[in-house]
Design a protein around this nucleic acid. Structure first.
Lengths: 146, 146
DNA sequence: TATTGTTATACTCTATAACTATA
DNA sequence: TATAGTTATAGAGTATAACAATA
């Protein structure tokens, strides 16, 4: 049996390499060519959690506030978000996703899932192997959500 | 039991989300602040597979040739790679990684593995769970190497 | 003629600093 | 005074087009 510490580091190395490669491959899929990774990440956040202010979005995406202003400008021009002035604190601007924005997120997710499902199907993975991947996904989520 | 097609798509969705989140977290770790993701990817390739021409590197990293010239310029200025004219075909330039370049790659990989191993250790994963992650890593590699 | 690499130039995304409006 | 957002400006990183050297 492998010593616990070795096992940890071997697992970390394997998982790191596998994760980077798969992420890189999947990230190349986008429903709208005109949308950047940063714009898509903001749309996905808005779709999942609802309206946000510019500064909250900047903090969540770990970019500077002017960068988020720029990102939101691009999304607004494409009709994927709308700005609404905050009534209670008129310094604030609330950003909401539009139906078109939501559609783009759903479609991008769908295309990525289809690509990955096709890749899995092509390799004729067994039910046991798919179960391993699902269980690993849950463990990976525990790592990032921690 | 889940129907095969559902199982495929559920697995794809779970794995996609888990992969993106983990990759994003790990990518924030770099041994040298002055190095970009693109530069690091080239160094890692050179360390693993040895000398490459500019156009081969451009093709492998899926960027345009002038972009790779720019990337190699940056790495050369920092002393992480050297250009060597090809004797047989004097249009070509061979790029080799230096010891300093190799050290940076090793150190970045080490820091990322330590971070991930620490994250795994903190969650007290069992040997069975670590085994699941290692098996999943192998399956993920089969997907991207296919 | 075709290929390899570089230079010239422009566009996108990001940042910091300075500014406006509001609290 | 402090905060939310924007504008001005600059620095990476990427792309296409045009060019020089070589095959």
């Amino acid at each position: 049996m492998t010593a616990p510490d070795d096992s940890l580091h071997l697992t970390a190395t394997d998982l790191r390499m596998a994760t980077f490669r798969l992420a890189r491959r999947l990230r190349s899929v986008r429903a709208a060519d005109s949308m950047s990774d940063g714009q898509l990440a903001v749309l996905a956040d808005l779709r999942m959690y609802g309206r946000r202010t510019i500064s909250t979005l900047a903090e969540r995406e770990r970019v500077a506030a002017p960068s988020m202003t720029n990102t939101i400008n691009g999304l607004e021009e494409q009709g994927y978000v709308v700005r609404t002035p905050d009534e209670d604190d008129r310094r604030r601007v609330q950003v909401d996703i539009t139906d078109a924005g939501s559609d783009i997120v759903v479609e991008t997710i769908r295309q990525r899932d289809v690509l990955l499902a096709d890749m899995l199907a092509e390799l004729d993975f067994t039910e046991d192997e798919l179960t391993t991947l699902r269980e690993a996904s849950i463990l990976m989520r525990r790592v990032t959500d921690r």
